[in-house]
């Protein structure tokens, strides 16, 4: 009985996976279509990164099950995000260095 309920749960998961798959494919088409508009670099980067972030979040949340993961995993990931942001701000620091010299 419990096993049947469990199987039903997994079947619901499978429906979600299919929906995520369709969304990922659609978003890929959108990001490629936008690139053919040849926007100026600022808006182009913004749109491309927003779409990539939505796609990445879908993969992490549903395929990697982050949406229902334990607290400790989130703690590890928050720490990772902090260090990742630090890495990404290094080039900005370099640019402001150039401005002051």
């Amino acid at each position: 009985m419990a096993d049947a309920a469990h199987s039903e749960d997994i079947k619901k998961h499978v429906r979600t996976y299919v929906m995520v798959f369709v969304s990922l494919m659609a978003l890929t088409m959108v990001t490629v279509a936008v690139s053919y508009l040849h926007l100026s670099i600022g808006p182009a980067i913004t749109v491309a990164l927003i779409i990539a972030t939505i796609k990445g979040s879908l993969v992490a949340s549903y395929f990697m099950h982050l949406i229902s993961e334990k607290k400790l995993i989130f703690f590890v990931l928050i720490l990772t995000v902090v260090f990742f942001i630090a890495l990404m701000t290094l080039p900005i620091g370099h640019m402001s260095d150039n401005l002051t010299h």
Binding site: T31, I51, A52
Partner: peptide, 9 residues
């Protein structure tokens, strides 16, 4: 992330 950053920008 690699795909848009390298190919589309």
């Amino acid at each position: 992330f690699l795909f848009p950053i390298l190919y589309l920008l």
